[in-house]
Design a protein around this nucleic acid. Structure first.
Length: 815
RNA sequence: GCGGGGAUGCCGGAGUGGUCAAACGGGCUGGACUCAAGAUCCAGUGUGCUUAGUGCCUACGAAGGUUCGAAUCCUUCUCCCCGCACCA
C-alpha cells in the first residue's frame, strides 16, 4: 500500500474551496438553510477534540443541505471576551486583546485545516468594537423599554473570578468556573436585564419547539418555574406584608409566618427584647455553607412581632427561618403545619400550634393532599380547588389578596467587575444620576492602555476611561466600569452573521427575515439554562423592537455528545489523555478523524476516543484509495443500481435525523458492493457525492480522478431512482450467502468424517435459478459448484437430494 | 423529593410488533500472504443439543401481562446517568 499524503490533498482542496468562494452564503436567494454551531471561546490551547466534533457535526449537515440545493448559511466567529484571556494577560503582564487575537489566529488556522465549509466572510469576534457596539446599543434599547435596570441586591460573588455572577452561573452554591469555590453573597448595586418580563413567553414558547430535545425543554421549564397561586396581605403594625401561596385553601390553618433570614426588611420586625438572640441566629445562618443547605435542619427565631390574619383577624406570630428562599415570592411564607411538610417540621421543633383545615389524617405528619375544608369558617365543606377560588375572591373583595403567578426565574444580572468584556454604556453624573451614553457616542471602547492590578478591575484606575462629562448637564461624571457578562455577546451573534459588516444598523431586517430562524443549532447541553434561555430572550426583545419577525431563534436545537479520553475519563492534562485534533489528523488524515468522530455513536451521544476505532476509519479510507487508484468504470448491474439507490435514500434520511453513524455504516456497506462489482460512472459519482459530506477532501480527490464536473462539494445530491430499488435482488444475495454457509457446513461435516469434498451440486427450483450462479458459487466456496434446476433430467444426483428442495432451500450434494 | 434519559453479545453501539442470535465498528480465534512481524484479505465468534445444512434450546436489567407473534407495546420492580432541588 502506497503511503498517502493526506496533508497535501487537504491543503490542495482547501485552497480550491477558498479560491472559488465555494461556501459563500448569498442573501435572499432561493430556499435557505441556516446551520449554526455555537461559536467558540478562543482559548490559548487551541482547538480541542470537542470543537472538532461539534464543527464536524455541523459541517456534515451544512454540506448535505448545500448539495441538496439549499442556500446554506454556515458561519463561524469567536466568543472572544472573557476571563481566561484576562487572567492570562495579568499573568503575562500583557493585554488580553493580544492573547485573544493570537488565539483566534490559531483557531482559524486549525479550523481551516479541518475543511469546515464556513463562509469566512461572515466571521465576527465579540471583542471587536464594531460588534460590541451593538451589545451596548441593545442595552440602551432595553434601558429605554425598562428592561435594563439597576438595583442593589444580595448578589453572588465569586472571589476567584473577582466578580459577581448571574443566578445561572451559580451551581450548588459554587462558581460555575470554580467547583471548589463557594460564592459569597454581597450587597451590591448592579445592572439587571429583565428576563422575567418574558418569563411566560419563554415558557409557553417551548411547547412549539418540536425539534428541541425534551431534556432541554424540561430543564428550562423547571428553571422558569411557573406557579399559579394567591398573594395574601398580612398586616403587621398597619403595614402590609405580602405572602405568596399556592395553597390558599389552607389559609385558615396558618399558625405562624416565616420571613427569610435574608429579607431586607427583616430587622424592622424584630422587637428590642429579641435583638440579641436574633443576631446570634443570623450569624449562624450566614456561616452555613451552601453545600450544607440540603442537610441543614430547619431553624428559626421568633421576631417578637405578630401579624393579623386577613380573614380571621387573629394574631399570628412571625418567625424568621433559614429555610425560606429570600428572592422567591416575597421572601415571606405562611406556615400551615397541618398541611405542609416543611411547616410541620418547623412547628414540631418549636412547639407551634398545628391547626387542621383539610380533612385527612394529619396526626403523624402533614397531610398535604387536596381535600374537603374544615375549620375554615364559611369555606368549610368546599374542596380545595373550589376553596382556592372562593378564598381568593373573598380576599380580593377586602383588598387583601389577589391571584398571582410566581416564577423561579430571576432577572439576569449582567454586571461584571472585570475588564475584558463589553463596557456598560452608562455614566454617573453627580446631579443627573445614571445617564445612558448617547447612541451617537457608541461604542464605549475599552482602553488599549491599561495596567492590571491583582485586586480590582483596571478600568477603575483608568482616569481617561472613568472621567466623563454628563451630556445632559455638562457636569462631571464617572463612567460605569463594570462590563457585561459575556453571555450577552452570545445572545444575538447569530443575527450579526447575517449582516456582519453593517455600520449603520445592527442588521438589516430583510436579511434577518430571509435567514431566520436558525434551522439547526448545535451546541452543548450545559447551556440549557443559560445561553439557551438568553438567546431566546434576546430574540423576543429584538422582535419586539421590530428588528425581525421570528420570536424563537432556533427551530431545531441539537446538543452534541461529549468526547472522553481513551480511558473513558474526561480529557485533561493531568490525566495525560488528551487527543489533539491536529495530531490525530496527522495520523488518520482530517477525513479519517471526521469519519471516526461520527462513526462510533449518534452525534448526540457521549463516547470515548479510541485509537483503534480511528484506525478502523482510516482503514476504510485506505480501501477507498486503493479502489480509486485502480479505477475502472463500466456498467452498473441491476444489483449495483439497487444498492446504490437504496443507500442514497436511507443515508439522506439518516443524515436528516442526525444519525450519522448509521449513514456511515450504509456508506461502508455500499462500498462493499461497489468494490466487488462493475460500476457505472454516474453511480460511482453518486457514491463520491455521498462520501463528500463526511470526507470532503478525499472525495474531491476521487472526483477529480473521475473527471467529475467542478467541485464535488458543490455538486447536487444524487437523486434517488425508486424504480431501481428492488429488494428481490437483496433477497437473492441473502439466499446466496446462506447457501454458501450451508455448503461450508456440509463440507466440514463430510471432512470431519474423513470424506472428501471437491464437487458440489446444487438443485434449485427453476424460478430461483437466477439467484445461484455457479461461477460465483465456485469462487466463493473455493469448490467446483454445479447448479441444476430440479427438473433437469440430465442432472447428477446420486443420493436424490433434489427431492427435498423447497422454495429458498436448494438441495445440496457434496462429494 | 421533582423532572429528563437509560439498561442489548467480550466492548462501543444498531434495532422500537414478525424477515433477530441480533447491523456496523473494535476486540478475540483460525486461515491466506510473509523468512518473520506489521499491514492487508478471507472465515469464525451465545449456550447446549442435533445433523450431510436451512432444526431445536436459551438470550436483549427483573417479574408479570397484551398479542397468533415482543428486544420492541402495557404494568410493577431493580439499578445507572443527568438536571433542579426546603420555590411555599
Amino acid at each position: 500500500m502506497k503511503l498517502i499524503n493526506f496533508k497535501a490533498i487537504e491543503k490542495k482542496w482547501q485552497g480550491k474551496w477558498e479560491k472559488s468562494e465555494a461556501f459563500k452564503a448569498k442573501d435572499g436567494k432561493g430556499k435557505k438553510f441556516y446551520v449554526l454551531e455555537q461559536y467558540p471561546y478562543p482559548s490559548g490551547s487551541g482547538l480541542h477534540m470537542g470543537h472538532a466534533f461539534i464543527y464536524t457535526i455541523g459541517d456534515i449537515y451544512a454540506r448535505f443541505k448545500r448539495m441538496q440545493g439549499y442556500n446554506v448559511m454556515h458561519p463561524i466567529g469567536f466568543d472572544s471576551f472573557g476571563l481566561p484571556a484576562e487572567n492570562a494577560a495579568i499573568k503575562a503582564k500583557s493585554h488580553p486583546k493580544k492573547f485573544t487575537e493570537d488565539a483566534i489566529k490559531n483557531f482559524i488556522k486549525q479550523m481551516k485545516c479541518f475543511g469546515f465549509s464556513y463562509d469566512w466572510d461572515r466571521m465576527l469576534r465579540s471583542h471587536d468594537p464594531a460588534y460590541y457596539k451593538w451589545d451596548q446599543w441593545i442595552f440602551l434599547k432595553m434601558l429605554e423599554k425598562g428592561l435594563a435596570y439597576r438595583k442593589k441586591a444580595g448578589v453572588n460573588f465569586c472571589p476567584k473570578c473577582n466578580t459577581v455572577l448571574a443566578n445561572e452561573q451559580v451551581v450548588n452554591g459554587r462558581c460555575w468556573r470554580h467547583e471548589d469555590t463557594d460564592v459569597e453573597v454581597k450587597q451590591l448595586e448592579q445592572w439587571f436585564l429583565k428576563t422575567t418580563e418574558y418569563a411566560d413567553e419563554l415558557l409557553s414558547g417551548l411547547d412549539k419547539l418540536d425539534d428541541w430535545p425534551e431534556l432541554i425543554k424540561a430543564m428550562q421549564r423547571n428553571w422558569i418555574g411557573k406557579s399559579e397561586g394567591t398573594e395574601v396581605d398580612f398586616s403587621v403594625n398597619d403595614k402590609k406584608w405580602k405572602v405568596f401561596t399556592t395553597r390558599v385553601d389552607t389559609l385558615f390553618g396558618v399558625t405562624f409566618l416565616v420571613v427569610s433570614a435574608q429579607h431586607p426588611e427583616l430587622m424592622s420586625l424584630v422587637t428590642a427584647d429579641r435583638k440579641a438572640e436574633f443576631e446570634k441566629f443570623l450569624r449562624k445562618v450566614k456561616s452555613t455553607k451552601e453545600e450544607d443547605m440540603d442537610k441543614m435542619d430547619k431553624e428559626g427565631v421568633f421576631t417578637g412581632s405578630y401579624a393579623k390574619h386577613p380573614l380571621t383577624g387573629k394574631k399570628i406570630p412571625i418567625w424568621t427561618g433559614n429555610f425560606v428562599v429570600a428572592d422567591y415570592g416575597s421572601g415571606l411564607v405562611m406556615g400551615v403545619p397541618a398541611h405542609d411538610a416543611r411547616d410541620w417540621d418547623f412547628a414540631k421543633k418549636y412547639n407551634l400550634k398545628i391547626k387542621q383545615v383539610i380533612e385527612g389524617d394529619a396526626s403523624k405528619e402533614a397531610y398535604v393532599n387536596y381535600g374537603k375544608l374544615v375549620n375554615s369558617d364559611g369555606f368549610s365543606g368546599l374542596n380545595s380547588v373550589e376553596a382556592k377560588e372562593h378564598i381568593t375572591i373573598a380576599l380580593q373583595e377586602k383588598g387583601l389578596g389577589r391571584k398571582k403567578i410566581a416564577y423561579k426565574l430571576r432577572d439576569w444580572l449582567i454586571s461584571r467587575q472585570r475588564f475584558w468584556g463589553t463596557p456598560i454604556p452608562i455614566i454617573y453624573c453627580d446631579s443627573c444620576g445614571a445617564v445612558p451614553v448617547r447612541e451617537k457616542d457608541l461604542p464605549v471602547k475599552l482602553p488599549e492602555n491599561i495596567r492590571f492590578n491583582s485586586v480590582e478591575n483596571p478600568l477603575i484606575g483608568n482616569k481617561k476611561f472613568v472621567n466623563a462629562k454628563c451630556w445632559k448637564c455638562g457636569g462631571k461624571a464617572r463612567r460605569e466600569t463594570d462590563t457585561m457578562d459575556t453571555f450577552v455577546d452570545s445572545s444575538w451573534y447569530f443575527l450579526r452573521y447575517l449582516d456582519n459588516k453593517n455600520k449603520k444598523k445592527i442588521f438589516e431586517k430583510k436579511k434577518a427575515d430571509y435567514w431566520m430562524p436558525v434551522d439547526l443549532y448545535i451546541g452543548g447541553k450545559e447551556h440549557a439554562t443559560m445561553h439557551d434561555i438568553y438567546f431566546r430572550f434576546y430574540t423576543k426583545f429584538l422582535a419586539d423592537l421590530g428588528l425581525l419577525d421570528v420570536r424563537e431563534p432556533a427551530k431545531r436545537l441539537f446538543p452534541q455528545g461529549f468526547i472522553y479520553g481513551e480511558d473513558g475519563r474526561k480529557m485533561s492534562k493531568s490525566l495525560g489523555n488528551i487527543i489533539v485534533p491536529e495530531k490525530a489528523a496527522e495520523k488518520y488524515g482530517v477525513d479519517g478523524v471526521r469519519l471516526f468522530l461520527v462513526s462510533v455513536a449518534g452525534p448526540d451521544k457521549d463516547f470515548s476516543w479510541s485509537e483503534e476505532g480511528a484506525q478502523g476509519s482510516l482503514r476504510f479510507i485506505l480501501r477507498l484509495f486503493e479502489y480509486f487508484r485502480n479505477l475502472k468504470t463500466g456498467r452498473s448491474s441491476r444489483k449495483v443500481e439497487h444498492y446504490m439507490n437504496k443507500a442514497i435514500k436511507t443515508i439522506a434520511h439518516d443524515i436528516e435525523c442526525m444519525k450519522y453513524n448509521l449513514a456511515v455504516i450504509k456508506l461502508r456497506e455500499l462500498f462493499g458492493v461497489i468494490e466487488k462489482e462493475e460500476v457505472g460512472k454516474s453511480d460511482l459519482e453518486s457514491f463520491v457525492k455521498v462520501l463528500c459530506v463526511f470526507c470532503p477532501h478525499i472525495a474531491e480527490e476521487f472526483w477529480a480522478k473521475m473527471k467529475g464536473k467542478g467541485l464535488v462539494s458543490l455538486a447536487s445530491w444524487p437523486r434517488v431512482n425508486e424504480k431501481k430499488i428492488d429488494d428481490k435482488i437483496e433477497e437473492g444475495d441473502k439466499a446466496l450467502d446462506k447457501i454458501i454457509n450451508d455448503i461450508a457446513h456440509i463440507v466440514k461435516l463430510v471432512e470431519s468424517k474423513g470424506g472428501k469434498a471437491e464437487n458440489v451440486y446444487l438443485y434449485v427450483l427453476p424460478h430461483e435459478l437466477k439467484n445461484y450462479n455457479n461461477k460465483v458459487l465456485s469462487e466463493r466456496t473455493g469448490l467446483d459448484v454445479k447448479v441444476y434446476a430440479v427438473n433437469d433430467k440430465d442432472k447428477y444426483d446420486p443420493s436424490g437430494k433434489s427431492d427435498k428442495v423447497k422454495p429458498g432451500r436448494p438441495g445440496i450434494y457434496v462429494e
